[in-house]
Simulated scan of single mutants.
Amino acid sequence: MQLPAYATLLTDIRNRVLTITVNRPDALNALSSRTVEDLEHCITAVAEVLHNDDGAWPVRGLIITGAGKAFVAGADIREMAAMSPDDAHDHSSRMHKVTLALEELPVPVIAAVNGYALGGGCELAMACDLIYAASNASFGQPEVGLGLVPGFGGSVRLPRRVGPGLARELLFTGRRLTAAEAREAGLVTAVFNSVDELLEGARSTLDLAARQSPAAIALVKRTLAETEGRRVPEALVTEADAFRAAFATEDKAEGTRAFLAKEPPNFPGR
């Protein structure tokens, strides 16, 4: 697939893994209005391909990372200082569209966090399926120290990631978590010694996922999203519906055929 050149993003597709790099290193990759606009366009373009291409996807996984010494250090405070309340609401709503679009992609998405993931950066990472971190990474929601509140999903997603107690503490105090602390809290899935190892680890996971059934992964992602926070009996009904849907796919026929024939499957993605 072809993506345009963006003012604040770099994109690279290798082995059906798309890497999106937020590229404002002089500003520690802060999420300006232009960056949010670029992210919205890029993720929307990917979503249109994946949702309309009937499984023959050029992308089977995404990595989101940051250039230089940070993942994303937060929102662009200099820009936000001049915003009116209505401007702020529009900015928040636009970034919500980005994070929801990320969550709704039918392929795995990994945030590869190097350095700071604060405020909007932590919120962007939490919209991804998995968060991998370099050992120098730090996470936090420091908005209250600026007289602000999270605007890109932090007050919603952080309790679901780390539990309500720790989330309240972090949101009330602005305290940062190291990579090791974030791993212990369940926010981060894996910690790596260097940025190179971090990106290699993310690509390795997505390469492994790319060998599985795309149709099944899409169903798993949808089931996880639809059952979160629901009572177990209701959630199990949704799971049973997904199980039934899997049996109608060409991937199920190929996967079971290959297993019985003791051959590697060649999933069509439908």
Rank of each mutant, 00 (worst) to 15 (best):
M1A: 11
L3C: 08
L3A: 05
L9A: 00
L10G: 10
T11P: 12
T11N: 11
T21K: 12
R24A: 01
R24E: 03
N29E: 01
S32W: 00
S33E: 05
V36M: 06
D38R: 00
H41G: 03
C42Q: 06
I43D: 02
I43K: 02
A47R: 15
H51K: 11
N52S: 13
N52F: 01
D53F: 08
V59A: 09
G61T: 05
L62S: 12
A67M: 06
V72M: 05
G74C: 07
A75I: 06
I77L: 14
I77S: 09
E79G: 01
E79T: 01
A82R: 07
S84E: 09
D86S: 10
A88R: 04
A101Y: 03
E103Y: 02
E104M: 14
P108I: 11
V109W: 06
I110D: 12
A111G: 12
N114G: 14
N114H: 15
G119I: 00
G119N: 04
G120M: 02
G121F: 00
L124F: 11
C128T: 11
D129E: 14
L130Q: 13
A134V: 03
A134W: 06
N136E: 08
A137I: 03
S138K: 08
P142Q: 04
L148K: 08
L148G: 02
V149H: 10
R160C: 02
A167D: 07
R168I: 06
G174F: 01
G174H: 01
R183S: 09
A185N: 09
G186H: 12
F192C: 04
S194W: 02
V195C: 10
D196K: 12
E197A: 15
G201E: 07
D207M: 05
A209C: 11
A210D: 11
R211K: 14
P214H: 07
I217M: 15
A218Y: 07
V220L: 15
R222P: 02
T223G: 12
A225S: 14
E226C: 12
E228R: 15
R231H: 05
V232R: 15
V237A: 15
A240Q: 15
R244I: 06
A248W: 08
E250C: 08
E250I: 04
A253P: 01
T256G: 13
F259S: 15
L260Q: 15
P264K: 07
